[in-house]
C-alpha cells in the first residue's frame, strides 16, 4: 500500500473508530438511569461492545500510524476528533437514544457485511469479528423501535420528534472522507453511496412499518468531520478527566 492510500485508510479508520467511541460513551450515560433494570444492563452491554469495536478500529489505525490507542482516546483534543455530530448529540429521552442506536446499528451492520470482503485483510477480519455481535444490537434496537413506534400516541410522538432531528444528522455518516476514492477503487471499503443505499433499503421500510414518517429534508449539518457540535467538548472533558488528571497512572 503506498503512502497516499495509507493516509486515506488511516483517515477513514479514525473516523469510524471515533463514531463508535463517542456513541459508546453517550450510551454509557444511561448506566444507573435506565427506565428499567434490564435496559440499564442491555445498554451498558451494547456500549461495551461498541467500545470493543472502537478498540479494534483504533488498533488497525495504530498499526498504520504507530499511535497508541489509549492516547488517541484520552489525550486528543476536540478539534482533531473525527466523529459525526450524529453521535455527539446528548442522549435525550429513551426514544432518541433507541432511535439513534437503531440507525447506527443498521448502518454498522450493512457496512460490516460489505467490509467482510475488503481487500485489506486486517479490516476484513475485524469486520467478520464484529458482525455477529452487531446482530444482537440490531435485534434489540429494532425491537424497541417497534415498541416505541407502534406503542402509544406519546411513544410514537417522541420517536417521530427524535427522527426529525436524527435523520439529517445520520446523513453525515455517509459523507465520503478525503481521498476515499483511493480506497473504493481498490476494494478496501465500499463507496459511501453503496453503503448509504444498503442502509436506506433496511431502515426506510422498517421505519415506515413502525408508523414513523421519514423527513424529506435530509441535508447533514456539515460535511466536514472536523466541525463538531457544541456537545463534543463537554463529553470529552468528562471522558478524559481522570486520564488527564494523572497521565502516568496505570491499572
Amino acid at each position: 500500500m503506498n503512502e497516499s492510500h495509507q493516509t486515506a485508510l488511516s483517515t477513514w479508520l479514525l473516523a469510524m473508530a471515533d463514531d463508535q467511541l463517542i456513541l459508546a460513551h453517550r450510551n454509557s450515560e444511561w448506566i444507573g438511569h435506565g427506565p428499567i433494570l434490564e435496559e440499564d444492563i442491555a445498554l451498558a452491554n451494547i456500549a461495551q461492545d461498541e467500545l470493543g469495536h472502537a478498540r479494534l478500529l483504533y488498533e488497525l489505525y495504530a498499526a498504520l500510524t504507530g499511535d497508541d490507542p489509549d492516547k488517541l482516546v484520552f489525550f486528543r483534543e476536540t478539534a482533531v476528533y473525527r466523529s459525526t455530530q450524529f453521535v455527539e448529540y446528548p442522549k435525550g429521552d429513551w426514544a432518541f437514544t433507541m432511535l439513534r442506536q437503531y440507525l447506527f446499528d443498521a448502518a454498522e451492520m450493512v457496512l460490516l457485511t460489505q467490509l467482510v470482503d475488503s481487500t485489506y485483510q486486517p479490516l476484513a477480519q475485524a469486520a467478520a469479528k464484529m458482525r455477529n455481535e452487531e446482530l444482537y444490537h440490531y435485534r434489540h434496537s429494532s425491537a424497541w423501535l417497534k415498541r416505541l413506534g407502534l406503542g402509544t400516541a406519546e411513544s410514537n410522538q417522541r420517536t417521530q420528534t427524535a427522527l426529525d432531528t436524527l435523520w439529517p444528522l445520520a446523513q453525515q455518516l455517509f459523507v465520503p472522507l478525503p481521498a476515499a476514492e483511493f480506497l473504493t477503487t481498490d476494494g478496501v471499503i465500499p463507496p459511501a453511496t453503496v453503503w448509504q443505499e444498503a442502509w436506506e433499503q433496511v431502515v426506510r421500510p422498517f421505519l415506515h412499518n413502525c408508523d414513523l414518517a421519514i423527513p424529506t429534508a435530509a441535508a447533514p449539518p456539515t460535511a466536514d468531520r472536523a466541525i463538531h457540535s457544541p456537545y463534543l467538548a463537554p463529553l470529552l472533558a468528562e471522558m478524559q478527566e481522570v486520564a488527564r488528571f494523572d497521565p502516568e497512572a496505570t491499572w
Binding site: E38, I41, A42
Partner: peptide, 13 residues
C-alpha cells in the same frame, strides 16, 4: 429469555 444482555458481554439472563 428475560434479557439478551447480562452481567457480562457473553451472558444472557
Amino acid at each position: 429469555v428475560k434479557n439478551e444482555f447480562g452481567p457480562t458481554l457473553c451472558r444472557a439472563i
